[in-house]
Computed example of a mutant assay.
Amino acid sequence: MPELKWIKSSFSEASGNNCVEVAATASDDIALRESESPADVLTTDRTALDALIRSLRQASA
């Protein structure tokens, strides 16, 4: 995967060792990884990620 600008979740631990990170790809998809396994990257499109987040928010309400 080309060099991406990874952004850590605002819910991450202060030590930075247990973080979810996201980055936009050149094809406008979203890449996700866990800081403990940075080589393992999941990519998805923005629509699917938005649907997942909306579903999780409704389930926690």
Rank of each mutant, 00 (worst) to 15 (best):
Met1Thr: 05
Met1Asn: 01
Met1Ile: 07
Glu3Asp: 14
Glu3Gly: 06
Leu4His: 09
Leu4Pro: 04
Lys5Ala: 15
Lys5His: 14
Lys5Ser: 13
Trp6Gln: 03
Trp6Tyr: 07
Trp6Asp: 05
Ile7Gly: 00
Ile7Tyr: 06
Lys8Gln: 11
Lys8Asp: 13
Ser10Met: 11
Ser10Thr: 15
Phe11Gln: 09
Phe11Ser: 11
Phe11His: 12
Ser12Arg: 10
Glu13Asn: 14
Glu13Tyr: 07
Glu13Ser: 14
Glu13Met: 05
Glu13Cys: 02
Ser15Gly: 02
Ser15Val: 05
Ser15Thr: 12
Ser15Trp: 08
Gly16Tyr: 05
Gly16Trp: 04
Asn17Ala: 03
Asn17Met: 04
Asn17Gly: 07
Asn18Asp: 14
Asn18His: 15
Cys19Gln: 06
Val20Asp: 02
Val20Leu: 15
Val20His: 01
Val20Tyr: 04
Glu21His: 01
Val22Thr: 05
Val22Ser: 01
Val22His: 00
Val22Gln: 00
Ala23Asn: 06
Ala23Met: 04
Ala24Leu: 14
Ala24Ile: 12
Ala24His: 10
Thr25Leu: 11
Thr25Glu: 10
Ala26Pro: 01
Ser27Cys: 02
Ser27Phe: 01
Asp28Gln: 14
Asp29Ser: 13
Asp29Gln: 13
Ile30Met: 14
Ile30Val: 15
Ala31Glu: 07
Arg33Lys: 06
Arg33Met: 02
Arg33Thr: 04
Glu34His: 12
Ser35Pro: 04
Ser35Ala: 04
Ser35Met: 09
Glu36Asn: 05
Glu36Met: 08
Glu36Phe: 02
Glu36Pro: 00
Ser37Glu: 08
Ser37Phe: 09
Ser37Gln: 11
Ala39Glu: 12
Ala39His: 08
Asp40Thr: 10
Asp40Cys: 04
Asp40Met: 08
Asp40Lys: 11
Asp40Glu: 10
Val41Phe: 00
Leu42Val: 15
Leu42His: 07
Thr43Asn: 13
Thr44Ile: 07
Thr44Asn: 09
Thr44Phe: 06
Asp45Gly: 11
Arg46Asp: 04
Arg46Gly: 06
Arg46Ser: 10
Thr47Val: 14
Thr47Ile: 13
Thr47Ala: 13
Ala48Tyr: 03
Leu49Gly: 04
Leu49Arg: 09
Leu52Gly: 02
Ile53Arg: 07
Ile53Met: 15
Ser55His: 10
Ser55Gln: 11
Leu56Tyr: 03
Leu56Ser: 03
Arg57Trp: 06
Arg57Gln: 15
Arg57Glu: 13
Gln58Asn: 13
Gln58Gly: 04
Ala59Met: 03
Ala59Ile: 02
Ala59Pro: 00
Ala59Glu: 08
Ser60Ala: 12
Ser60Lys: 11
Ser60Asp: 07
Ala61Thr: 14
Ala61Met: 09
